[in-house]
């Protein structure tokens, strides 16, 4: 089995929000970034994967197991980190192990102790005394202690200082090094993707915009720049979005369409630029 996560035609509606027909796969041994603006359905997708929300239609397989029919087996192989701690704040770190380890037959206490040492977390400290970064590491230490094959993180880097963010991304990179583990993490911090992700799934307001390799994603678009007088009707028609300034313009154009504008300045687009230009609010920057 080469795909650790398969999501097929996943749909869910509640209230005015609709997640429509989302499909993507995460192969074994890679990191996938789940991106999109706020309210695009990243957390909903993760909760659907975890069966914390009931899907309207579609199919989800975790390590080849159906996420509902084989929920227990699938979850035993899954490590999850949310943006905030989910342990009782009154627990000591050692109590976290006591409470959680019983649920995972493969729990390795020595490994947990080793990870606490690596992450510099004292077992006697209470969860509420740990910083946000430390709490994140504690959740990771738990997931690593039962050798979770697939790690799912929901905006793990939001609210972390640059040092903690860097440490976390380093941990994730090391985690997949053996080729036996995969990571799906949602984020809106594109620098994290540039650094750690191999694949990108981009959700835009409940719809799948792109899912594939990061290089493919970045290669899809180019930024075309020029003076105000160089902004032709043809360019406007072909551009995904145009931002105009008093002195000129910037446009996101599909790479295949850039041939007609070779006289203008054409630069590779960053993930950040693609996200801003392709979101509906992209034009607000104009």
């Amino acid at each position: 089995m080469t795909d650790y996560l398969e999501v097929k035609n996943l749909s869910k509606s509640f209230g005015r929000f609709r997640l429509c027909d989302i499909s993507f796969t995460l192969p074994k041994g890679y990191i996938m970034g789940l991106i999109g603006p706020n309210g695009s359905g990243k957390t909903t997708t993760i909760k659907l994967i975890l069966n914390m929300l009931a899907r309207d239609s579609g199919e989800i397989r975790i390590l080849g197991l159906d996420n509902i029919a084989d929920e227990q087996k699938a979850k035993a192989a899954l490590g999850v980190v949310f943006d905030t701690n989910y342990f009782s704040e009154d627990w000591q770190v050692a109590q976290v192990e006591q409470a959680i380890s019983v649920f995972y037959p493969g729990w390795d206490s020595k490994r947990f102790a080793g990870l606490l040492q690596t992450f510099q977390i004292a077992p006697a400290r209470k969860v509420k005394e740990l910083s946000k970064g430390m709490q994140m590491k504690l959740m990771l230490a738990c997931a690593f202690s039962y050798d979770a094959k697939l790690l799912i993180l929901d905006e793990p880097t939001s609210g972390l200082d640059p040092v903690s963010r860097d440490e976390l991304l380093q941990i994730l990179s090391e985690y997949i090094e053996d080729g036996e583990h995969s990571v799906l993490f949602s984020t809106h911090i594109t620098a994290d993707l540039e650094r750690a992700a191999d694949y990108i799934t981009y959700l835009s307001y409940g719809e799948l915009f792109f899912s594939g390799s990061k290089d493919e994603f970045v290669d899809l678009f180019r930024i075309v720049k020029g003076g105000t007088e160089e902004l032709s009707a043809d360019l406007r028609a072909k551009a995904v979005r145009v931002r105009t300034f008093p002195t000129g313009f910037e446009a996101l154009v599909k790479t295949e369409d850039t041939g007609a504008f070779s006289a203008l300045s054409i630069e590779p687009a960053t993930i950040d630029e693609i996200l801003v230009f392709t979101s509906r609010k992209g034009e607000d920057y104009a």
């Binding site: 909760k47 975890l50 949310f82």
Partner: peptide, 18 residues
């Protein structure tokens, strides 16, 4: 109340238990 106060529904949601 401890579950609600600490947002532990998420922990219950990820444990390999029905």
């Amino acid at each position: 109340s401890v579950t609600e106060k600490n947002g532990m529904e998420r922990l219950y949601g990820i444990l390999p238990v029905r």
